[in-house]
Design a protein around this nucleic acid. Structure first.
Lengths: 158, 158
DNA sequence: CCTTAAAATTTCATACTTGAAATATCCTCT
DNA sequence: AGAGGATATTTCAAGTATGAAATTTTAAGG
């Protein structure tokens, strides 16, 4: 402790307020995830992690490396290996080596996968629309903005 | 389809806006969870699920039934069995039968567990305070309010 | 009392998840 | 070219996580 008073720097909501907020964020996301998981299972016989990977791949028609997928979805490398493995087995995704670098494998959606995902994405959007249906537009926008700021402040490590 | 036009009822943000919001909520909670998990591991040699269960038990000095824990934490029954098992092994929690109903077991924190959790909770609150530190107070309050409304609208099933 | 339904929990198979260690490949510098 | 380090991925052990089936106990109705 050299010269600056430690506790007097921070501004904004007091600690208890922030803790409450975090608990609300956590509960909201768990509630929504539970609904999504159940519906993906019953209507498409798939899982949320698989949907997430398909969703990532759908944004990248040229394909993604394994590490791109894990970075994008905020999950570990080893995790992606297993999920992609099952997607390939199911004919939803394909892996090819990139010429010039045999370490990297490029994962793409197959036509089957693209088609299957399109149906899921359509339903998924409807479900979210339904689940968040009673949020007024201005609140939704404000909330998204706040979270976006938060996210960009923490992107790439604490 | 009898008489009401299906699409004209809902108000609020359009679907795309809601979808964006959901993705932000999801990413924010995953980012925060990743930090918490890593710190709980390195500083307390424990995991997030264990912390969650301890946290639930700490609110209930008289103890909780297994099903109370799973309902409170929004996780499945079978899941709680394993986590509590490990907590009991570690001396953090105890299980006793309730007289009058031998189906139910009551889980409580041991003194060791209570003490360990107090230290973790203190650190946890500091971490959240740090992670959400740049949220202005009014935004934090608004966000929490919005999420609270959302939650109570969906409590107890879709 | 006895059957049947309900409630609380555990068990089980399968899948997801992490973090660390192991592999394989590429790159750079001398 | 060869050593050493960096990158990309897989493997592995342990711990979550779900949903369904099985178990145990209680409660209710005839």
């Amino acid at each position: 402790m050299v010269s600056a008073p430690l506790a007097a720097v921070k501004s904004g909501a007091p600690a208890k307020e922030r803790l409450r907020l975090w608990i609300r964020i956590l509960r909201a996301s768990r509630l929504i995830e539970a609904v999504l998981r159940e519906r993906l299972k019953s209507r498409f016989d798939t899982t949320l992690p698989r949907f997430d990977v398909l969703s990532a791949l759908d944004r990248a028609p040229e394909g993604m490396a394994m590490s791109d997928i894990s970075r994008f979805l905020l999950v570990s490398n080893g995790n992606v290996t297993g999920i992609v493995e099952r997607l390939v087995t199911d004919g939803m995704a394909s892996r090819t080596k990139r010429d010039g670098d045999r370490r990297t494998s490029i994962i793409k959606l197959t036509p089957t996968g693209k088609e299957a995902f399109a149906a899921m994405a359509e339903a998924h959007e409807r479900w979210i629309d339904e689940l968040l249906g009673n949020l007024p537009e201005d609140e939704a926008r404000a909330l998204a903005g706040t979270l976006k700021t938060f996210e960009s402040n923490w992107e790439g490590g604490v």
